[in-house]
Amino acid sequence: MAFQFNPMTIGITDLRDIVDTAAAYGIKPNPKVAHGIQLYETLHPRVTTVPAVTLLDLTEDEAIEHAFAIARSKATFMPGQPAVGVAVSTLQDQAVRETWEILAADTDRIIQELRPTFDAAAGQVHAAVEAGIRPHSTAQDVLDLEDATAAALWNDLNTHVRALERIKNLRVKMSTKLGLPPQAFYNGDVITDYTACFADPDTGIKAGAIFAYANNAIGRKTFTEPRQEWLALAAATKGKMQLN
Rank of each mutant, 00 (worst) to 15 (best):
M1K: 10
N6D: 15
P7S: 12
M8P: 00
I10L: 11
D17W: 06
I18W: 03
D20G: 04
A22Y: 03
A23T: 12
A23S: 11
A24T: 07
G26E: 00
I27F: 02
I27H: 03
P29Q: 11
N30F: 07
K32W: 12
V33N: 03
V33Q: 01
A34E: 12
H35Q: 11
L39G: 00
T42C: 01
P45H: 07
T49R: 13
V50N: 07
T54A: 09
L55R: 11
D57L: 13
L58H: 08
E60P: 00
E60G: 11
D61K: 13
E62A: 14
A63H: 12
A63V: 05
I64D: 13
I64R: 14
H66Q: 14
H66L: 05
A69Y: 09
A71K: 14
A71V: 02
R72K: 15
T76E: 10
F77V: 01
M78P: 00
P79Q: 09
G80L: 09
A83V: 14
G85P: 04
V88F: 11
E101N: 07
L103Q: 03
A104Q: 10
T107S: 13
D108W: 06
R109K: 13
I110T: 06
I111K: 05
Q112A: 15
E113H: 10
F118K: 00
H126A: 05
H126T: 09
E130S: 15
A131N: 05
I133A: 04
I133N: 05
H136N: 15
D144S: 14
L145C: 05
N155I: 15
N158H: 11
V161W: 01
R162E: 11
I167K: 02
I167H: 02
N169W: 07
V172L: 09
K173E: 08
G179P: 01
G179H: 01
Q183E: 03
F185T: 10
N187T: 11
N187H: 13
D189V: 13
V190Y: 03
V190T: 08
P201F: 11
A212C: 08
N216M: 13
N216E: 14
I218F: 10
T222W: 00
R227F: 04
W230E: 07
L233Q: 06
A235L: 05
A236V: 03
K238W: 00
K240H: 15
K240M: 01
